[in-house]
Every structure is written in structure tokens, then in C-alpha cells.
Simulated scan of single mutants.
Amino acid sequence: MQWLRLRRDRRGIALVEFALIFPILLTLCLTGAEITNFIITKMRVSQLALQLADNAARMGAGSPLAAKIITETDINDLFVGANLQSGGLDLRTNGRAILSDLEQDPANAGRFRIVWQRCYGQKVARASSYGTAGTNNMTGIGPAGRQATALPNSATMFVEVYYVYPPLVSARLAPATEITEIASMAVRERRDLSGINNVQAAPVSTC
């Protein structure tokens, strides 16, 4: 008799339904939060790569009548500024930035070469995906269909940023564990393309 009354009792049905659906609801909420955080982080890394390329295209010192000279100190300051701009992302610890100087290849008409390359960040050492210093006879730099080139007697600053995504909840809920962004900017003013000056014996951010 008591068993029949218990079978007909519906007073706890809502609580049971909630208990069954709660894990699914919680997973959906946490996944949404993780994806949102990933998108925001990806956008910040993209803006960081663009700012780094823009600043690299402007760096250098010299009079208005002379070509600007760039130094290792300029490049080091560029990277330090990018790390400060990254804020909580901490580019130095969680990422790796690669700056490449693309110029026309004098040995191959209509082609390009990477004259020099500098790197920053403590992420596991990673070479550029598009070529290293000395690579020549290139059609451009960057992924197919989005390659950057350089004008005669000028250069293009090409930046790659590889960033290890720190998950908000769990890496399994994020679309990827690493964010990759690229950006390029043509050098704004005349620049001395003979090489990087290092009269101050500043540390070289080698790759």
C-alpha cells in the first residue's frame, strides 16, 4: 500500500528533472564562457600583431633628409612595448613574436627575400612558418592568397604572433590551445636598408 502511494507521488519530479539536466546546462554555460573568452583573447592577439607591425614600420632615427637607421635597441624596445601592451596576456611568457624584414631580392627580379629576423617570447622556440633570415627568391611572405610584398628601395615588416591560450575553465572546451595571428606593414619613410646598426652593443633578439 505504501509502495503504491510512493509510486503515485509526484512532489519531487521537478527536482529530479533539474538534477538530470543540470550537468548538461552547466556544460553549455561553461563552454559558452570559454568560447567567448577565446574569441576576446584572439582579438587582442590580432590587435597586438597589428600594433607590433605598425610600430616596426615607424621605428628608426635620422634627420628628415636622411634615411632612417634602425638599431637593435629599437627592436628590443619594440618588443618590450608589445609585451607591455599585451597586459595580462603576458606575451613574453605565453607567446612568441617573430618580426621579419622583407625586401626585394636583387638576385631575382620580381621576387623577395627575408633580410633579417628577430624573435621575442619564452614560448617553446618556434621558427617562422614563412621563412627564416636569408630565405630568398620568394613570391611574398604570408599564407597563400594573403602574401605581403615590398616596394622597390623599401621594406615590409611582417609579424607572426604565436600565443598559448590560457583556458578560463578547461582547454577541452576551447576551440584551440594556440592562437596564431599575422600582420604586415610597409615601412613609412625612407630607411637605411644596409642592415641593423648595433653601435651600442645591445642584446640581439635572435630566433
Rank of each mutant, 00 (worst) to 15 (best):
A109F: 05
N76V: 11
T177W: 02
T156Q: 03
L25E: 08
G81A: 15
F79E: 08
C119L: 08
A107D: 07
L193W: 05
Q147A: 08
Q85M: 14
Q85P: 00
K42L: 02
V204A: 13
P143N: 11
F158S: 08
Q85G: 02
A144W: 07
M157S: 11
D101E: 14
N37P: 01
I21C: 13
R11Y: 01
V159W: 03
I182W: 05
R113K: 14
P166H: 12
G142H: 05
K68C: 01
V124W: 00
T180H: 14
S100L: 14
T41N: 04
A56F: 07
I98W: 06
R188C: 06
A67M: 02
P106N: 02
V164L: 11
G95C: 09
L173R: 03
P64S: 08
R146F: 10
L30H: 03
P175M: 00
A133C: 10
L4Y: 07
S129T: 13
S184Q: 09
P152A: 04
A148K: 05
L91F: 14
R172N: 08
A57W: 00
A201Q: 14
L65K: 13
S154V: 03
V164E: 12
G140R: 01
T139M: 00
G142S: 07
I70V: 15
N136C: 03
C207W: 07
P166T: 12
A107S: 07
L173N: 02
Q2E: 14
I13T: 14
S205K: 06
I179T: 08
P175Y: 00
A97F: 13
Q104E: 12
W3T: 15
T177V: 09
S100K: 11
Q104I: 10
I21N: 05
G140I: 06
Y162D: 13
L25M: 15
E17Q: 11
R58D: 12
R96T: 07
V159L: 02
L99G: 10
R58H: 14
A148Y: 07
R44N: 11
L15Y: 06
L151V: 03
A174T: 00
C207F: 07
A66D: 15
D77T: 09
R96V: 06
N83W: 01
L78A: 09
P152I: 06
L65R: 13
V159T: 12
Y130Q: 05
A107W: 00
P106R: 02
A107G: 03
G87L: 13
N153M: 09
R113I: 05
F112C: 06
L26S: 11
I24W: 09
S100P: 01
A125G: 04
A61Q: 12
I35Y: 04
G131H: 01
L89G: 08
C207V: 08
L15S: 14
N55C: 02
M1Y: 14
A61N: 12
L151A: 13
L168C: 05
R11D: 04
A67E: 11
D9L: 09
T206L: 15
R58V: 04
W116A: 01
Y165I: 02
F18V: 08
P166C: 11
N83G: 06
I21T: 15
N83F: 03
P152Y: 01
R146L: 13
Q47A: 10
L20H: 10
S129W: 10
Q104F: 05
G145A: 05
V115D: 07
P152S: 04
